[in-house]
Structure formats: structure tokens, C-alpha cells
Design a protein around this nucleic acid. Structure first.
Length: 466
RNA sequence: GGCGCGGUAGCCAAGUGGUAAGGCCAGGGUCUGCAAAACCCUUAUUCGUGGGUUCGAUUCCCACCCGCGCCUCCA
């Protein structure tokens, strides 16, 4: 089945094909580094990661740019309050963001682009828009005149034709000609962080950075542009207006937007006390893998209701997958090929691929894995899962983990070393053999307290960390 | 009000014009010195409400109710 994505621009799910061969030029909206990113942000960043991985696994090469917005009102406010330079302030949160991404095993885009490192390019773009009549100045700021861009609204499917009537409004009386016009360049404020450029002193508006950096690194027409739904309007709509006014070419061919994450059915907000960063969750004992799994398991276009029950349930599901992987890796199997389980493996692999091809339907892809897992366990118990079945089963599981990447546990600081665990297990086994159950149970409890769970199986003792 | 997304078992959630994937929880079982862990089994005559189209709708159409998002730089 061909790879298909839902395109916000056309409001349809359509076959994805890049403009040029197997190279995908993509741009995703990254964080504004004014604070720690929260799990709602990471829902979107995990979506980018799944998208990247599936494109790669589908045989595409990626040229992916993500911006780091390191100048905006909140950053300026906070940095000023702390008496820090912009760079000092944003470095802290940029680093925290990148650390969090690594913890969640998010692939790094081919390029991260910081807004403050592209100020001259933004000024040049604004200059060009001025020269071509797309802008006007007002009180030292430069605005984009959306009346000059008839297609404005095509992404968010809003009809602005009734609102766009700039001529009525007196420029001297109003900051903007039209309520929908947006700032390309903001007038300098005394005591704040400003840049001297060819269009004057001040600082860039929010939207221009994405247009400029995307076009600079990826060319006038992107294959794919993604972000959270809340960015559809105005951010992405404005990006389109600027970019297409600038280049005269279609800006992005496919627009993908991830839905919101809710907490207990409500929007996350500081006042409700349901506002979580990754640090908060790890502090409560949840693992990065559980967070990653939960955020990845609900298809990106569906609102995701985040709950602690959900995290706990993810942890259990991950355990089951890891147990199965371990069993596949270590089981002693009779030679031969079990026909039934083999055809199920092939079918499950196809189902997994088809589901991912269908606009990244991760929920159905997971369903395929678990269904196979159950049948394979039954076959393993029954002895109808044979040596030559191992490869296809591992292929499915490896493909699954190439997307979800949760099978290998993260290292935990302060954990009991493996050698120590092994020697305690040896002592327990000896005690059991001598039928000294008091001693063997004591060792078992000691290990449990240190976070190690023992599993007595026919093949011997297996252990894992809690 | 406009635009968009969604309402499927206790919770999370997939899906199709032909009679409901999967995960978690719960209950039952296998295994075990006892446990744990692991594994298996069971769990929606029903898909927000009311109409309509159809031989047949959760799936198509209409209306309504409810939740969420955007409509001033929130992923």
C-alpha cells in the first residue's frame, strides 16, 4: 500500500510523493525556548519522530530542518527579569530541550536552526517583501498586508474576504491597517534586545523565521511541513503568505498537524495543576519509554488524553513486549518451520506496514504486533513455533522497535550492578537446591527491594529490573 | 458565531455498508517448595441522541446534544 498522509491544505488523505526522487525536504516547528517543554509539546515532537522514522523505513532520505525559537516576548521578559543576555537565558532551555529529546529517543533533525542566527536573512526577506509592495510601516514596525495575498486562509480554510478591507482604516489611528495583518518586524523598545538591520532597528516577528530558514535550507518548495494544530492559524497561514509572496512558488506541498494532548480530559494549564514536564513524570517514577510509548500509541491526528493510568498501562504493555523479545532471542526451538505461525508473522508484518502507511496509524500497527505476540506465545508453549519461524518473528518485532524504540530499557542511575545480581542469584539457587527456602526467599526479597524481579522458569532464572 | 477535530466496553483505543482489532484493569487457569514473574483464557447483540437511505449502518445522509482546539506569538 502506498504511503498516505492527511494534508491539512487539501483536507484529504493523499498519497505522499516528494518532489525529487526519494529525498524528503521537511520542516517542523520546534520549541520556543523560554521554559522547559511540557508533555503536550512532546506529543508533537514524538509525532515528528515517528514521521521521520517511518519515512526513513519507507526508503526516503531526509533533509529535515527544525527551528529553535530563541527570541520572543516571553524570552525577552524572562531574560530581562533575570538580568541575563538572551543567549544565556535561551541556552539553558535549549540544552534542556535537547536533553529531553535524547531521553525520549527522538531522532535529531538534520539541522536545527536558531532564529537569532538568521536575523540578517530575515531582514533581507522583509526588504524584498517591502520592495514588492507586500508590507507597510506603522509606528516603526513592518506589517504584512494580507489584502495583497488573495489566497490567505487556504490552509485554515477561513474566508477572510469580508474582513479584509484595509482601506477603511486610518493608518495614523490604528497600529495595523487590518486586524489580520501581522508583524514581520517589530519596532525597537528601549532597554530591550534589538538588532540593527537593513530594514531598521528592532526584532523579528514570530512567523518570518520559519519562512526564511525553511527556504534558505530546503528551497522554495518543501515536501512536508508539520506542527501542532494550534499553529494552523495564524502561524502556518502567515508562513504561507510570506513565503509565497517571497518566492512566487508553493511553500509546502503537504501540511501535517498533530492534535492536542489533554490531561484528564482538560487542557493542560498551570492554574489547574495538571501541567507536566518530563522531569515531573520521571520524578514520579515513570520511565522515558513509558512516556514515549504512550505519546506514540495514539495516532497523531486524534486528541490524546494523558493520564497516569495511561502511563502505568504503557509500562505493563512494554514489559510484555520485552518479555516476548527475550523469549524470541533465547528460546530453544526444534528445527523446522511452523506453517501457521509463519503465515501469521507475514500477515502481521504486512498489517503493521499498511497501518503505518495509512497516515501513521500507530494504534493499528500496535494491534498487529500484540495479536502476533499472543499467537506466537501460544505456539511457543505448544511447540509449534520452530527454529525457522524465529527470523520472521524477529523481523516484525525489530520493525516495531525501529518505530517505537522502547524495547531496550534506559540505564538507571544508582541501580544494583548486574554482577552483584548474578552472584546473589547463584547463592539463592544453591540455597534452593539445599532446600533452604528461608535463605532463598530472603535473597529473593533482598533483590526485590533493590528493584530486581526474578523469574523462575524451566530454563533457569531470568531477572529484570523493576 | 466561523473554521477544524472528536464522542466505540471500567480506562486507553482501531475499524468496516454485512454484522465490533489491540492495550490496561478485573475474573479464571497453567507453572511453582510457597510466591512472584511469565504465559494463556474470559469480558461491548453494541459503537452520543433522534430521524432517513438501504435487504442490511457503528460505518452513508440530515438534525440535534456533548467534549476539545483555533479565530491576539499556546505543540
Amino acid at each position: 500500500m502506498p504511503l498516505r498522509f492527511h494534508n491539512t491544505l487539501t483536507q484529504q488523505t493523499q498519497v505522499f510523493e516528494p518532489l525529487e526522487g526519494n529525498l524528503v525536504r521537511m520542516y517542523t516547528c520546534g520549541p520556543t525556548v523560554y521554559d522547559f517543554a511540557h508533555i503536550g509539546n512532546f506529543r508533537t515532537f514524538v509525532f515528528y519522530d515517528i514521521l521521520r522514522r517511518w519515512l526513513r523505513l519507507s526508503g526516503y532520505k531526509l533533509d529535515h530542518v527544525m527551528n529553535i525559537t530563541d527570541v520572543d516576548d516571553k524570552i525577552i521578559r524572562n531574560a530581562t527579569a533575570l538580568g541575563q543576555s538572551l543567549g544565556q537565558y535561551t541556552d539553558t532551555y535549549t540544552k534542556a530541550f535537547l536533553d529531553d529529546c535524547a531521553t525520549l529517543r527522538l531522532e535529531r533533525p538534520e539541522r536545527l536552526a536558531r532564529a537569532t542566527e538568521h536575523i540578517p536573512q530575515m531582514a533581507a526577506a522583509i526588504k524584498k517583501l517591502e520592495d514588492t509592495g507586500y508590507t507597510y510601516r506603522s509606528d516603526g514596525s513592518i506589517y504584512f498586508r494580507i489584502a495583497k495575498f488573495p489566497e490567505y486562509g487556504k490552509l485554515s480554510h477561513n474566508d477572510f474576504s469580508g474582513i479584509v478591507s484595509g482601506a477603511r482604516v486610518d493608518v495614523d489611528e490604528y497600529e495595523k491597517n487590518d486586524a489580520r495583518d501581522f508583524a514581520l518586524w517589530k519596532a525597537p523598545k528601549p532597554g530591550e534586545f534589538n538588532w540593527d538591520t537593513e530594514v531598521g532597528t528592532g526584532r523579528p516577528g514570530w512567523h518570518i523565521e520559519c519562512s526564511v530558514m525553511a527556504v534558505q535550507y530546503l528551497g522554495a518548495t518543501l515536501d512536508l511541513h508539520a506542527g501542532g494544530v494550534d499553529l494552523v492559524f495564524p502561524h502556518h497561514e502567515n508562513e504561507i503568505a510570506q513565503s509565497e509572496a517571497l518566492t512566487g512558488k508553493q511553500f509546502a506541498r503537504y501540511w501535517m498537524h498533530s492534535e492536542f494532548l489533554l490531561v484528564d480530559g482538560q487542557k493542560m494549564s498551570k492554574s489547574l495543576g495538571n501541567f507536566y514536564t518530563l522531569r515531573d513524570l520521571f520524578g514520579k517514577g515513570f520511565t522515558p519509554e513509558s512516556v514515549r510509548y504512550l505519546l506514540a500509541s495514539v495516532p497523531y491526528r486524534k486528541g490524546l488524553n494523558f493520564t497516569f493510568d495511561g502511563l502505568t498501562s504503557s509500562k505493563t504493555a512494554i514489559e510484555r513486549l520485552r518479555n516476548f523479545k527475550h523469549r524470541l532471542d533465547t528460546a530453544k526451538l526444534a528445527p523446522g518451520l511452523g506453517e501457521a505461525i509463519q503465515s501469521l508473522a507475514v500477515a502481521s508484518l504486512k498489517q503493521f506496514r499498511d497501518a503505518m502507511d495509512d497516515d501513521l496509524n500507530t494504534a493499528e500497527a500496535l494491534g498487529a504486533v500484540f495479536e502476533f505476540l499472543r499467537e506466537a506465545n501460544t505456539a511457543l508453549d505448544a511447540g509449534t513455533f520452530l527454529e525457522d519461524n524465529r527470523a520472521a518473528a524477529l523481523e516484525l518485532l525489530n520493525l516495531f522497535d525501529a518505530v517505537f524504540e522502547i524495547l531496550v530499557p534506559a540505564e538507571q542511575a544508582g541501580a544494583i550492578p548486574a554482577e552483584e545480581v548474578e552472584s546473589l542469584i547463584a547463592a539463592r539457587t544453591a540455597a534452593k537446591k539445599a532446600r533452604d527456602f528461608a535463605k532463598s526467599d530472603a535473597i529473593r526479597n533482598e533483590l526485590l527491594e533493590k528493584g530486581v524481579i526474578l523469574e523462575d522458569t524451566k530454563e533457569g532464572v531470568r531477572w529484570k529490573r523493576k
